[in-house]
Nucleic acid binder design. Structure first.
Lengths: 159, 159
DNA sequence: GCTCAATACTTGACTCATCAGCTATCTTCC
DNA sequence: GGAAGATAGCTGATGAGTCAAGTATTGAGC
């Protein structure tokens, strides 16, 4: 009866595992990050991206792309970080539509503080389950999955 | 300066890739599932789990565990599926605290209908990026990551 | 057989992110 | 140099999920 429902199809199993792994891992790490530093994972990721950016600043639209959020999602997220003083706005001389998000010194400090617990926690979570080769393999595969440049037309039924 | 921030630590890279892969993949598939069938990915997963369960029924608490949601999250999600007629409540004779969620015939039909587009889409997404071995490897690694029985005490700084 | 803790579930208030729709600015083309 | 369309960003309404606190039921200990 359930030909359609049986998971003989490979991708489905991997997808289900991705969903569960993500939910499981993020719910745990999110709780720790929130309790210890008052940040969400997305807050943390945004601070991290900014810290790596030239002059510690990024256009909001590029930030949105990097953390896979919509433009309005980034606006609201940055509202929070701005009100904490971790991020500032800076106009762009060349294009007045653009408002850069700039990591402040306080923001960098906050990031370092959060990283000091978050990085070991993340690492422990992986180290408990995988050896180094497996972590590297997982990272490489996941990076390919997240690469949006591939297969834009992936919708056999909808596009 | 940024000893703490540099991603020499392996787990962090894998974690960042997990976040991005998940966001990227789910935002796409969620949009398709919502547009074509009016379901979220979690709705779909719940219908699927129920379809595999004995007598097509599951305690809410077990369902919550399987899809990694809180008890209240499951209540709200099932509210929606109930009002669509895809799921029904059934009392448990042995324990009157328990309310089973039961997949109705309409719910099974809905699942089949949704699966008919969703499964190929999921599969295409993976097939575009990976060969079969890689998909199997990714699935196996992700399953281990999502396995909550391991490493409960994963918080070096908090527990 | 009564009390007390644990378990299953629901509800209200809240957070975070979405979409639709808006303004402002930039670019192109006539 | 003015109109038309594209791009960057913001805002109101909404949805999906969380937590905290509540009820109802069960089971264990005395």
């Amino acid at each position: 009866m359930s030909q359609v429902l049986s998971e003989q199809v490979r991708g489905v199993r991997a997808f289900a595992a991705l969903l569960k792994a993500h939910a499981s891992v993020t719910s745990r790490l999110n709780a720790l990050l929130a309790a210890e530093h008052g940040l969400t994972i997305n807050d943390y990721e945004v601070l991290l991206r900014l810290s790596h950016a030239p002059e510690r600043k990024l256009r909001r639209v590029d930030l949105a792309d990097q953390v896979v959020l919509t433009a309005s999602g980034i606006t609201r997220l940055l509202d929070g970080l701005e009100s904490c003083g971790f991020v500032e706005r800076a106009p762009c001389g060349a294009d007045r539509r653009v408002v850069y998000a700039v990591l402040t010194d306080a923001g960098l400090e906050k990031l370092k503080e959060a990283a000091s617990t978050h990085v070991p926690q993340v690492d422990a979570l992986f180290a408990e389950r995988f050896d180094e080769d497996e972590i590297a393999t997982a990272a490489a595969l996941l990076e390919r999955l997240g690469d949006r440049s591939r297969g834009e037309n992936c919708a056999p039924g909808g596009d």
